[in-house]
């Protein structure tokens, strides 16, 4: 039998590479967004809350800060809302900030009125701060330690154990 060796070896090689490449995609979420900010200084900002109070991140240096980006049209944000409502009483030394992402202040105010509010929610005109943080969807939560560094970014809703794990790290100078 006459075997075309180049075709055989080349073809099987290409097949193996291709299958390995396609297989490498399993277990990765193609929709995941890279976390550029972890390990870097949290971008400073000065914004005004829905209640009209100015908040500046630079003034909060030295305190652990949790910044949660959310909006009223996002279902997972609504899911994590009760947890975030409770959190400030559980971790009184941590500053919680909400930043409203791509939403209208009126809708946010109405939502907070009915859903409850325990910490300031900041209006982000033009999404500037969201872009500074590299937000690519909501909810996203940034954990800033006492040195002002982002030690973790969570894309998607957070859960109680995550807070319990990260807050002690944020307290460490």
């Amino acid at each position: 039998m006459k075997v075309n060796v180049p075709v055989l070896l080349g073809g099987l090689f290409i097949t193996a590479i291709l299958v390995a490449m396609l297989g490498s995609g399993f277990g990765h979420d193609p929709r995941e967004v890279p976390k550029a900010l972890e390990g870097r200084v949290a971008p400073t900002f000065s914004l005004v809350s829905t209640d009209g109070d100015p908040v500046s991140l630079a003034d909060l240096r030295g305190k652990p800060v949790i910044i949660n980006f959310w909006s009223t049209w996002c279902q997972p944000c609504r899911q994590e809302h009760p947890l975030l409502l409770m959190a400030p009483s559980q971790y009184p030394d941590v500053v919680f900030l909400g930043v409203v992402y791509a939403d209208e202040p009126a809708k946010v105010k109405a939502y907070l009125k009915s859903g409850g509010q325990t910490y300031p929610h900041l209006i982000d005109p033009g999404g500037r701060v969201s872009i500074d943080y590299g937000v690519a969807g909501v909810p996203e939560t940034y954990f800033v330690d006492v040195n002002g560094l982002v030690i973790h970014k969570e894309a998607g809703p957070i859960w109680p154990d995550l807070l319990a794990e990260l807050v002690p790290k944020m307290r460490k100078p």
């Binding site: 039998m1 075997v3 075309n4 060796v5 075709v7 055989l8 073809g11 099987l12 290409i14 097949t15 291709l18 299958v19 396609l22």
Partner: peptide
């Protein structure tokens, strides 16, 4: 995909 690719290669190599 793996099966179809490799059988195609085999066919071509052995029978071309």
């Amino acid at each position: 995909i793996a099966l179809t690719f490799s059988s195609s290669v085999l066919l071509l190599a052995l029978r071309s």
